[in-house]
């Protein structure tokens, strides 16, 4: 492998939630510009990984290391992670009553711009930028006056997450099932949104259950997570195999392998 600095490097990560171990020795490396898909059955720890990387206070890191562009990610508060360019598109984004989307987006954009040394965006420029990006995602202007995520449909929430991602221009985006519950048109809009950022300086970790989004967002690597670890990595063919045969096939194969290795040890 090259001597490039990985955009994200996770080494032997162990994460507990309310005392229960969920991530149990996970290793993963993403290089700049790559798109990685992370698949796996429900309860395998995908969302836990996403929230732990973002610094959710309920997710306790027991062991391991995470480097984000060479910097110790785990030493940073969630807002510092965000300002440095880490973005999470939530599976279930929180509602923020009374805070308008416009006010929220402007605060977030200015926080990121401040880190990038760009200074606050003018109201005029911000309005123009919003207009363009809303159109790109097929969103109404009216959304700006609504409270953040309050009363949003599933699809509106996902588009809103992608809108934030586009406005914040992160280095690394973790998309946690952003494709779930979207119809085919919405899925394409979301994928177009992500693709609009594709560059050697934009890396994606895409958590998904379905192969269909991978038709629009071509992954360089596909990983399968089970019981808190990555058990198999491959390319897009792996996703196709999973779609066709389900996870049982992989589970059986792993069981055979581990039975075999136990036999060898004995």
């Amino acid at each position: 492998m090259s001597s490039r600095v990985a955009e994200l490097e996770i080494r032997d990560l162990h994460v507990r939630v309310e005392g229960k171990p969920i991530i149990r020795g996970l290793d993963l490396k993403l290089y700049p510009g790559e798109v990685h898909a992370l698949m796996g059955p429900n309860g395998s720890g995908k969302t836990t990984l996403a929230l732990a990387l973002m610094g959710h206070p309920r997710y306790e890191i027991q062991r391991g290391e995470v480097l984000f562009a060479g910097e110790n990610l785990l030493a940073l508060r969630p807002d510092e992670r965000a300002r440095r360019g880490l973005f999470l598109s939530f599976q279930y984004p929180a509602e923020v009553p009374g805070v308008s989307v416009a006010n929220f987006l402007r605060s977030a954009v200015n926080a990121r711009r401040q880190f990038l040394g760009e200074g606050d965006i003018s109201l005029r420029d911000f309005q123009a930028l919003l207009k363009e990006k809303l159109a790109l995602l097929g969103m109404e202007q009216g959304v700006l006056r609504r409270s953040v995520n309050e009363g949003f449909s599933g699809g509106e929430k996902k588009r809103h997450e992608i809108l934030q991602m586009i406005l914040l221009r992160p280095r690394l985006a973790i998309l946690d099932e952003t494709d779930s519950g979207l119809d085919i048109d919405a899925l394409r809009v979301v994928a177009d949104g992500v693709n609009s950022l594709r560059s050697p300086r934009f890396t994606v970790l895409l958590i998904t259950h379905y192969q269909r989004i991978l038709r629009y967002l071509k992954p360089d690597y596909v990983h399968v997570m089970m019981d808190g670890r990555i058990v198999r990595s491959g390319d897009a063919h792996l996703a196709a195999q999973l779609e066709e045969k389900g996870y049982d096939w992989l589970r059986e194969e792993l069981a055979r392998y581990s039975a075999g290795s136990e036999g060898e040890n004995a």
Partner: peptide, 27 residues
Amino acid sequence: EALFYLMTRGLARPVATRLLVEGFLEA
């Protein structure tokens, strides 16, 4: 959860708290 959400968008805790309080009083 709302506080965490705002912080993941780059807002420091005091700023995020202020936004949530304003939101609470908005009505």
